[in-house]
Amino acid sequence: MATHAVEAVELVKTYPAGRKNPPLRALDGLTVSVGEGVVLGLLGPNGAGKSTTVKILTTLSRADSGTAVVAGYDVNRSPDQVRRSIGYVPQKSSSDPMATGLENLVLSGRIFGLSHQESLQRARELLERFGLREHGSRPVKTYSGGMQRKLDVALGLVHRPKVLFLDEPTTGLDPEARANLWNEVVRLSGQEGLTVLLTTHYLEEADRLAGQLAIVDHGRIVAEGTPEALKASLRGDSVHVELVDPDTDGTVRALLGQLPGIGEIVVEGNTLRARVDRGATAVPAVLGALEDKAIPVVAVTVSRPSLDDVYLQHTGRSFRVAEEAA
């Protein structure tokens, strides 16, 4: 049996009602495990329970029920040992804006018990590695968003943790800074058997970074596996039909449903998505059927299953719609 760096079982967390909000069940029996040296992506829309999971696993928050073991220690019974073994990069930037990059890193090293010399050496090493060497002596408030995020990740690594938690590492970054940070994370995951648990609501990011994926919806894991296995579990191809007018009365849906080789169909506004056995034969049939009934079409596309299709399959909603609802 492979050893697990993170093992969470049946986590439940309910936030009490506030003045404006009803009580919120953020986690509803979430179970997930991450093997040593694996990069696991928790993928889900905002409000699915990803950050709450990370907060519980990093000892910041406590679950109402359920157990979690991180780096061999129980988060409730030995929070201090867990804290020594992990690096936590919160969703919001976690550096002190008034201090320089170097000062931030040194302080973090000292808090984890490194000597001043060791901290300084480690801080310089990390600044170098994240391409921040020339900026080490400038206050963080002068950094760009991408630079701040890199420093955040470096802050999580100062004490050489066994498990690194990255909560939405690239949210709010421009595409270039995002690609840049992705490269850093890919490089990290190959090193020193570091285990990484990252949360993201970008399908592309999950596909790119994670060796293992867990799809979170309404506080539970709805699907797990490698991105390839998850995509492969979907039979055939995916056909997207974009209509001029929304299919309000379900005519188009009924029409396409009769065609041979067409699986389930999901309608969202002007778009229909259908699972088909073979894209090459389905597209002409779809177009022919629509033309017979003189239904105007903007576009028809066929694609190999994407993570979006996986998400759709397991939650009954497309990712975009889930995001908008959140």
Binding site: T59, L60, R83, P90, Q91, K92, S95, P97
Partner: peptide
């Protein structure tokens, strides 16, 4: 407001 407090509290 930043993540500094959360990072600190998840550290020893």
């Amino acid at each position: 407001e930043r993540g500094v407090m959360d990072r600190m509290l998840a550290s020893p």
